[in-house]
Amino acid sequence: MEEKQRAEVRIEVTDGAAIPTEKDRGLLSAWRIAFFGSIALVIGLCIYKPHPYLDILEFVPDGIRVTFEVTIISIILSFFVGMLTGLGRISKNRGINLIASTYIEVIRGIPLLVQLFYIYYAVGSFTRIPPFFAAILAMTICYGAYMGEVFRAGIESIDPGQTEAAMSLGFNKRQTMFYVILPQAMRTILPPVGNEFIALLKDTSLVSIIAVADLLRRGREYATSTFNYFETFTMVALIYLIITLLLSKFVSIMEKKMTPYE
């Protein structure tokens, strides 16, 4: 008789940059071309035409910092919101389950930009919310819902035998979830979480609309004061691309490190 080997579960990629893996040679070289090409382009432009390209490069770092701040705070918060939502979605308690499901359904049906406006302007008409907070709140609420589905899929991918083994030892449901199921689910969850992270970083460009001085906003400020629209947005696009490519590389390295239980 042969032992049943559980197939490695992979959660489908929905959004975000394609993450290069060793197996996917085509994608890997595409990554190299895009990454080194854009770096070469940035350097080339700065040497060829330091005004305005180098000036732009010196003007936007504050914005890059804000973009990262919004991204990292939002991803951490939405990770926990997502965990709670995912647990809610698999809960046997009808009320909790309904709340979690409705939250996901509603949030996924409203464009992020509209959610952002809603929190900043609509809710903001009752109580003033600083733009930075509104941005993080909107990103967290939105990505918490997406992350909830990632968590649910990750938890459901774990063999029910694991729950039975833990329960048979005397663990209650909560202990089983936290000691046995979630640590294993984290591995399945990591690649899609990485993707959400990259998608979120790109989506933070939307917050420039509510006066958060992120990368895109800084670019716009530079462009409107100097009228160098083409040069500015070329640089902004290249910087986003380089950051995104770096992150996707980072995620793929993390993923490779996490794979073996050996």
Binding site: E164, A165, S168, L169, G170, V180, R187
Partner: peptide
């Protein structure tokens, strides 16, 4: 849960915790 602590069970497919070493499997509970 208390009753189950006194009732060991062994499964056809072992159901060991794959993210834990052999020793950790034994000491967790």
């Amino acid at each position: 849960n208390k009753v189950r602590m006194g009732l060991g069970m062994v499964f056809q497919n072992f159901n060991l915790f794959p993210h834990k070493t052999v020793l950790e499997n034994l000491i967790l509970a």
